[in-house]
Write a protein that binds this DNA or RNA. Structure first.
Length: 823
RNA sequence: GCCGAAGUGGCGGAAUUGGCAGACGCAGCAGACUCAAAAUCUGCCGUAGGCAACUACGUGCCGGUUCGAGUCCGGCCUUCGGCACCA
């Protein structure tokens, strides 16, 4: 047989697979469905190794399921709106659309060079009118359901990107994309009301048994649910009430001060009567001038100023000083916090610094506190109330609900659940995104663009200036319009939508990619969804995965679909690193997929990347490792060449009893491998160990390279080896299959495991003395516990080593081991 | 501080249910083939001692449970990730 030439083989099969309907997928009720999905890429222009890893994993899953009898949906598309296209326009004067479509074309060619089994008929590009039309339609759906609203707020602004950002896009006070510091700006912006779904987004994490706990924990932290009491305190001096939120109502009798955020709206009235008004105003201004990083760091010094005004603790009538502080966050809770120095560390520090009163209200009954000599707050969740009126003597957890009940009975407070999660800011002051379909009429105000007028198309006569507000506002043609209601003068919203909106529903569009009446048909989306296996990077643990869950729940409530969660199982792949660091241009450690594919072929690249590390862990790139994978494929090629004549002579159904002992060993290895590879792919995504067992099988076949082999066994082992290789290395598997077998390897049924083949008459068991391995013996399979116990002392090695000692007991595990315990 | 994950040879990693630690691969060493090289094939390859059979030690650290622990329990250490002035 000629030498393995990957370039030739891969070109040949890619041409076959590129036929228009080769991978066309349709609804088929006769087979179970399986939706395999990799996170669609941003069209940067070139695939990197992270993509290669992502798609290789997805392709194994999809190809395996297809051979295992499932009707598999495996689509691909492009998350095509976004900043880089616009930056290219600013830097090089190219149109963002030209730049994007050229990149997509290039990336599709690269994906095809990997031999991926996608149904390209369903391809989605979010920047095309036939897609963003429905993104706008969905915005309108959210709007009609009261889930899209515009409000003025202090929002996150990135100077470098020239746009606002969602909270999820601010990482450690910096922009997720360009890493420059984000600051607050007051702007009127569009929001999606994700907080309406906070409770369900949290509760349904329990349904996601196929998700890594890490991701679920991250979402749980992000949503940040807490239960407590919200109650109001009278401020007699201005005849107003201030609302406060606490998760520790049991400490309510220990309140000695009230801390307000500098943004608190009642401060204006308080200042009007405060003897200290000028200093308070100055303090607020200074605090608000601080950056977000300074404001929210727990290391920053806690500062405050007394307003000179008091409020009343409704539980005991106590007089409470009102302070303004730099550490209370206005956006969370009510922007006002009750100060209990004795049972909160931060309040203790603050009260100590400013000499405020400390009242102990909880004691530890197991280990009473020495109040006179305490130098810290008591914050353990063990205790009994003291100094707390009618609640004195009550266990603290009981007291929490009793005190809430009392506040509700008296009408000054109520049980309250709070979330850290904020509404999703979706406006962007950028060009290359889906325009928000809103018109502002001079007379009628804010109006949705009528459905028949969608899409609101992106204009081309715009200026891309760095730092300019909303490029769309520079297009007069776009900006000026007439009111769809009264026909009068109106103008358009010039912001576009966050691209995370586009990516929140693309996996639904795949199920019905060419629908011109709706985003997708309900029956089709219900047939294919949820996604059975979603595969992507951990960096989307919160952003994309939380937004998509939110979208699914809203669309369910709008009766567009009938399930609660979009992604049944989630696999988060590790990064591809080299020399201990993420591949990056600045470090000069980038290995380009094109380079590897042209040198060794896509099959080698896929095999190496799947073999070198478990999918969830980071993968260290190794050029020697790649060569090892290439060697293995050559080995496969060679042994099948050697087996060639035998394979041709063999038949598919034969009596395995006619095999020699050595041949039976090979057949046993073969069927053990079928079992292991099947379970590793199906149940564990343990591709590395699946491949290692395929290597062992090939090693076992190699034992016959110089010996005659039973043709039937040669045929059986070659056949199953190729079936198992097919999902991992599709080209070489297809080529070798076509040499020895009929049909298309990828359209065969998956390898069938024969339990009878791995049955052995004898098995080797381990003989231990006091838990240490001292011998191995061959015994009949299934030899009973009692027989093994009887056998043990008769073994020469046991007799030798136990001489002069007493056998205390013998532990026997059939087919595994005997352990002789001696003294 | 809270929550989560991880720690095994020179390296990537395996050991799925408490039962032979180090599968498979990489690197390395030795040999075969070759005029030679590449490719290929064969063997060795945790540490220490020993000519060897073998023995002792060995899965981050300390302790425990068990006939038996990489795996279970208690207490730490280190690394990575998330959240964090959230009341």
């Amino acid at each position: 047989m000629e030498k393995y030439n990957p370039q030739e083989v891969e070109k040949k099969w890619q041409a076959v697979w590129d036929a228009p309907d080769y991978y066309r997928t349709e609804i088929d009720e006769t087979r179970p469905k399986y939706y395999a999905l990799e996170m669609f890429p941003y069209p940067s222009g070139n695939l990197h190794m992270g993509h290669v890893r992502n798609y290789s994993i997805g392709d194994v899953v999809a190809r395996y399921r297809s051979m295992a009898g499932y009707n598999v949906l495996h689509p691909m598309g492009f998350d095509a709106f976004g900043m880089p296209a616009e930056n290219a326009a600013i830097a090089h004067g190219v149109k963002p659309s030209d730049w994007t479509f050229a990149n997509i074309k290039n990336m599709i060619a690269q994906q095809k060079s990997m031999g991926l089994a996608y149904d390209w008929n369903r391809e989605v590009e979010t920047c095309r009118e036939d897609y963003y039309r429905w993104t706008q339609w969905l915005f309108e759906l959210f709007y009609k359901r009261g889930l899209a609203y515009k409000k003025e707020a202090a929002v996150n602004w990135c100077d470098k990107c020239g746009t606002v950002l969602a909270n999820e896009q601010v990482v450690d006070g910096k922009c997720w994309r360009c890493d420059s510091e984000v600051h607050k700006k007051n702007l009127a912006q569009w929001f999606f009301k994700i907080t309406d779904y906070a409770d369900e987004l949290l509760a349904d994490l329990d349904k996601l048994t196929g998700w890594p706990t890490r991701v679920k924990t991250m979402q749980e932290n992000w949503i940040g649910r807490s239960e407590g009491l919200e109650f109001s305190m009278e401020v007699p001096a201005i005849n107003e009430k201030i609302s406060v939120y606490t998760t520790r109502p049991d400490t309510s009798f220990g309140v000695t001060f009230l801390a307000l955020a500098p943004e608190h709206p009642l401060l204006e009235k308080i200042c009007a009567v405060s003897p200290n008004a000028d200093a308070v105003k100055k303090f607020c201004e200074e605090a608000r001038a601080q950056s977000d990083i300074e404001r929210t760091s727990s290391e920053s010094e806690k500062k405050g100023i007394f307003t000179g005004i008091y409020c009343v603790n409704p539980f005991n009538g106590g007089k409470v000083q009102i302070w303004v502080t730099n550490y209370v966050v206005f956006e969370y809770g009510t922007g006002a916090v009750m100060g209990v120095p004795t049972h909160d560390e931060r309040d203790w520090m603050f009260a100590t610094k400013y000499g405020l009163e400390k009242i102990w209200v909880i004691d530890n009954p197991n280990n009473p506190l020495d109040f006179a000599n305490m130098d810290n707050a008591y914050v353990e969740k063990v205790g009994v109330l003291i100094n707390s009126g009618a609640f004195t003597g009550m266990e603290m957890h009981k007291a929490i609900s009793a005190i809430i009940d009392e506040a509700e009975r008296q009408g000054f407070g109520k049980r309250k659940v709070n979330y850290r999660l904020r509404d999703w800011l979706i406006s962007r002051q950028r060009y290359w995104g889906a325009p928000i379909p809103i018109i502002y009429c001079d007379k009628c105000g804010e109006i949705l663009v009528p459905e028949k007028d969608l899409p609101v198309k992106l204009p081309e006569d715009v200026e891309f200036k760095q730092g300019a507000l909303s490029p769309l506002s520079t297009s007069k043609e776009f900006n000026e319009c007439t009111c769809p209601k009264c026909g009068g003068h109106a103008h358009r919203e010039t912001d576009t939508m966050d691209t995370f909106i586009c990516s929140s529903w693309y996996y639904m569009r795949y199920t019905d990619a060419h629908n011109t009446e709706r985003p997708f048909n309900r029956d089709k989306v219900n047939y294919w969804s949820p996604v059975d296996q979603y595969i992507g990077g951990i960096e989307h643990a919160i952003l994309h995965l939380l937004y998509s869950r939110f979208f699914t729940k809203v669309l369910r409530d709008a009766k567009l679909l009938d399930y609660d969660e979009p992604f049944e199982n989630l696999l988060t792949q590790g990064m591809v690193i080299k020399d201990g660091a993420k591949m990056s241009k600045s470090l000069g450690n980038v290995v380009s997929p094109e380079e590897i594919i042209s040198a060794y072929g896509a099959d080698t690249a896929r095999l190496f990347i799947l073999f070198a590390a478990p999918v969830e862990r980071d993968l260290d790139w190794s050029d020697e490792g790649v060569q090892g994978s290439f060697r293995f494929l050559n080995r496969v090629w060679r042994i099948l060449g050697i087996f060639g004549d035998a394979i041709a002579k063999g038949v598919d159904n034969y009596d395995a009893q006619t095999l020699t002992a050595e041949e039976k060993d090979l057949r046993r290895t073969l069927h053990k491998t079928i079992k292991k590879v099947t379970e590793d792919i199906r149940d564990r995504f343990a591709f590395n160990t699946a491949i290692s067992s395929l290597m062992e099988l090939v090693n076992a076949m190699h034992n016959f390279q110089d010996k005659p082999i039973n043709p039937n066994l040669a045929r059986e082992s070659a056949r199953n080896l190729l079936l198992m290789l097919a999902p991992f290395v599709p080209h070489i598997a297809a080529e070798l299959w076509s040499k020895f077998f009929d049909g298309d390897v990828h359209k065969q049924n998956w390898a069938v495991f024969d339990a009878a083949a791995i049955v052995e008459e004898e098995t080797e068991i381990v003989v231990q003395i006091n838990g240490k391995v001292r011998d191995r013996v061959k015994v009949a399979v299934g030899l009973s516990k009692a027989d093994l116990e009887k056998l043990a002392p008769t073994l020469p090695r046991v007799a030798e080593l136990t001489e002069g000692k007493t056998i205390v007991k013998i532990i026997a595990v059939p087919n595994k081991l005997i352990n002789v315990v001696v003294k």
